[in-house]
Simulated scan of single mutants.
Amino acid sequence: MTKQDVINQVSAKTGLDSLTSRSVIESFFEVVKEALIDGEPIYVRTFGSFILKQRASKIARNISQNTAVKIAAHTIPSFKPSREFTDQVRAQEIPFSTKKAKA
Rank of each mutant, 00 (worst) to 15 (best):
M1Y: 08
T67Y: 02
A35N: 00
Q65I: 07
F50V: 11
G15E: 14
K58I: 01
V6P: 02
E40F: 04
A101N: 12
K100E: 15
A68C: 09
Q9M: 13
I7A: 03
R83W: 03
S57R: 09
K58W: 00
T14E: 09
I63H: 04
A101I: 12
A56Y: 04
E84S: 13
H74E: 06
K3A: 02
H74G: 03
A12R: 10
N8M: 06
T67I: 14
Q92S: 11
I7V: 15
S64H: 09
H74A: 08
S64D: 10
A73G: 08
A60R: 08
F96T: 15
G39C: 09
A72Q: 10
A68R: 14
L36A: 00
S64I: 15
Y43P: 00
Q88V: 15
A101V: 13
D87Q: 09
R55D: 05
Q9L: 13
I51K: 04
T75N: 05
V10G: 01
T67G: 09
D17G: 11
I59F: 04
M1D: 12
R22F: 09
Q88S: 08
A72G: 12
E34D: 03
R61D: 10
K100H: 09
E34F: 01
S64R: 12
K53C: 03
E26N: 12
K58A: 03
I63C: 05
S23D: 12
T46S: 10
V89I: 14
P95Q: 09
R22L: 14
T75L: 03
G15P: 14
I37K: 06
T2L: 15
R83T: 12
P41D: 07
V44D: 06
V10L: 07
E93C: 01
A91P: 04
N62Q: 10
L52R: 05
I59C: 04
A91W: 04
T20K: 05
L36V: 00
D87T: 13
I25N: 02
F85T: 07
G15D: 15
I37Q: 07
D38C: 11
P77C: 03
K99S: 11
P41S: 09
I59W: 13
K100M: 09
F47D: 07
R61P: 01
S11G: 07
E34A: 01
K53D: 02
P77W: 00
H74M: 08
K99E: 08
G39W: 05
V10W: 00
T75E: 02
R22S: 13
V69P: 03
R90I: 14
S18M: 06
V31G: 01
A60I: 00
S23P: 04
E26R: 05
R83E: 07
A60N: 11
K13H: 09
R55A: 05
F50S: 08
N8T: 02
R55E: 05
